[in-house]
Simulated scan of single mutants.
Amino acid sequence: MSHEVRVTWRGKSMNKRTVAMVEAAEKLLHSRMAILQGSYNKGGVGASAGTHDGGGAVDIDVRRLAPASRVAVVKALRQVGFAAWLRTPSQGSWPFHVHAIAVADKDLSASAARQVADYHQKRNGLKNRGKDDGPPGYYWMTWELYQKSRTPPLPEPDSIISLAAMRYAATHDVMTGAWGADRLKVLAWAAHPKVGALVNAELAPPRGVAWHVHFRRMMRKIEAHYQLRNTGQFDPGVAAQMKRFGYKIVA
Rank of each mutant, 00 (worst) to 15 (best):
Lys42Thr: 11
Lys221Glu: 15
His172Trp: 01
Tyr119Thr: 04
His225Thr: 05
Gly50Phe: 07
Gly232Asp: 08
Arg229Ala: 15
Leu86Ser: 06
Ala20Lys: 11
Glu26Thr: 06
Gly196Asp: 08
Val103Ala: 14
Val238Tyr: 04
Asp105Lys: 01
Trp94Pro: 03
Tyr226Leu: 04
Ala201Thr: 11
Ala181Asn: 13
Gly44His: 02
Ala24Leu: 07
Val62Asn: 02
Pro136Met: 03
Lys12Tyr: 07
Met219Ile: 00
Tyr119Arg: 03
Glu202Ser: 09
Thr88Trp: 01
Lys106Gln: 13
Met1Asn: 09
Lys27Trp: 00
Ala178Gln: 14
Val74Gln: 09
Pro193Gly: 05
Gly246Ser: 07
Pro206Phe: 05
Asp173Lys: 03
Ala190Gly: 05
Met166Asn: 04
Lys221Pro: 06
Gln115Lys: 13
Tyr247Asp: 08
Ile60Met: 12
Arg220Tyr: 11
Tyr226Cys: 00
Gly134Asn: 08
Pro206Asn: 04
Gly125Ile: 03
Gly11Ala: 03
Thr171Asn: 11
Tyr168Gly: 05
Asp107His: 08
His214Ala: 10
Ile249Asp: 04
Ala25Met: 09
Val116Pro: 04
Val45Ala: 15
Gln79Ile: 04
Ala164Val: 12
Gly81Gln: 01
Lys75Pro: 04
Thr171Asp: 10
Lys106Glu: 10
Ile35Val: 15
Ser2Pro: 13
Arg216Gly: 02
Arg123Asn: 09
Pro152Tyr: 05
Met14Lys: 03
Val62Arg: 01
Leu187Phe: 00
Gln79Val: 05
Lys148Pro: 01
Glu223Ala: 05
Asn41Gly: 12
Ala47Gln: 11
Ile101Glu: 13
Pro155Tyr: 02
Thr151Asn: 07
Ile160Val: 14
Thr176Met: 13
Met14Thr: 05
Lys185Thr: 10
Ala190Trp: 00
Ala240Gln: 07
Ala104Leu: 14
Arg216His: 10
Leu65Val: 08
Ile160Cys: 12
Gly237Asn: 03
Ala112Thr: 05
Pro157Ile: 03
Ala165Lys: 00
Ala76Ser: 14
Ser109His: 06
Val238Pro: 01
Ser93Glu: 15
His214Gln: 07
Ala190Ile: 00
Lys16Gly: 12
His172Phe: 05
Ser111His: 09
Met219Glu: 09
Asn128His: 12
Lys27Asn: 14
Tyr247Lys: 02
Pro157Asp: 06
Thr142Cys: 10
Asp61Ala: 09
Gln227Pro: 00
Ala169Tyr: 01
Pro157Arg: 02
His172Asp: 01
Ala49Met: 13
Arg63Ser: 11
Tyr119Asn: 08
Gly81Glu: 04
Phe215Arg: 02
Val238Asp: 05
Gly237Thr: 04
Gly50Trp: 06
Val80Ser: 06
Pro136Gln: 04
Gln115Trp: 02
His52Trp: 09
Gln91Met: 15
Ala201His: 06
Ser48Thr: 12
His99Tyr: 07
Arg17Val: 12
Arg217Met: 11
Gln227Met: 10
Lys106Arg: 13
Arg123Cys: 10
Phe234Tyr: 08
Gln37Gly: 14
Asp105Trp: 07
Leu228Asp: 05
Val19Ile: 06
Trp85Ala: 14
Arg17His: 10
